[in-house]
């Protein structure tokens, strides 16, 4: 028996499959694209190609596209799934999780294995992956390239929180001939500042935080966040899959 967790986010769709012993036996990620319904269909095909039948295995869907997975047995919100995934990754029962997603950022307080409190950003993309994407785009770079480059820059800030205004700030910085690394620095600094200010409502001074979501691969983002929060930021390559992992763990509780 396999347990399937599918996290259809606004930007990327992540899949985690667990084996009987709840060990991860498959991880997949793909762009969500225009249609979550199509994405769910593609995931089904890929799973079948791996010899896993989603119709015959317990499956939980989460994320913004969770309603578009017809073969899922259950839907659970990304808050609960990220929390459960982060606990598994960190082998703990208490944590403060920061998830920087494609269109929203979540701060989740977990105590004794249960979600105790959470905050999500409102209808605004400041401090999310989307902000980074838009800025990287206007600089003709990939988001991960921008993050790496940011480490060598400094001395510039973007003052607008609104993505649209911030983009025009970036464009005028480019026009002014500001070196790319300085602009990249300003972009990452803006995201990290916004996330840290959101987290401050639940974060205790000096408390270590777990970072999940697509930005956990960028070493510099973690470093910059550590500096802003003045706390250790724990992450791992698996943290990108935290939501899907949490969903798969929930699937393991389903009796078909």
């Amino acid at each position: 028996m396999n347990y399937i967790g599918i996290d259809i986010g606004s930007t990327c769709a992540k899949v985690v499959v667990l084996d009987e012993q709840k060990n991860v036996c498959l991880e997949m990620v793909q762009p969500t694209g225009w249609s979550s319904v199509d994405t769910a269909e593609e995931i089904k095909k890929k799973l079948l190609a791996e010899g896993i039948d989603p119709d015959a295995s317990p499956c939980v869907a989460t994320g913004y596209g969770r309603v578009s997975v017809p073969y899922a047995n259950k839907m659970i919100t990304e808050i609960t799934c990220h929390a459960m995934g982060a606990l598994k990754i960190n082998h703990s029962q208490d944590a403060l999780v920061i998830d920087i997603g494609g269109q929203d950022t979540k701060i989740i307080r977990i105590e004794e294995g249960m979600v105790k409190d959470f905050i999500m950003n409102d209808k605004c993309s400041a401090g999310t992956g989307r902000f980074l994407e838009v800025m990287a785009n206007s600089m003709g770079m990939r988001p991960d390239e921008l993050c790496t480059l940011a480490e060598t820059g400094g001395g510039v800030t973007i003052s607008s929180m609104c993505t649209v205004f911030a983009e025009s700030e970036v464009i005028s910085l480019i026009g002014r001939g500001e070196p790319k690394e300085n602009i990249a620095f300003a972009v990452v600094d803006s995201i990290v500042s916004k996330v840290a200010s959101q987290a401050s409502r639940l974060h205790e001074k000096g408390e270590a935080v777990c970072l999940t979501g697509g930005l956990c691969d960028c070493e510099y983002v973690c470093k910059a966040l550590e500096k802003k929060l003045q706390s250790q930021v724990i992450t791992s390559p698996q943290a990108r899959y935290a939501g899907a992992l949490g969903a798969a763990l929930a699937a393991a509780k389903i009796k078909l």
Binding site: Y64, I76, T77, E78, I79, T80, D104, M114, V115, K116, F118, M120, D122, K123
Partner: peptide
Amino acid sequence: ETDYSQTDVGQLNTRIAAFIEM
């Protein structure tokens, strides 16, 4: 926090569903 539009129904659902899951 909300207003009189219906554009945030998805976001409200996620927050409130997560709250009930807690």
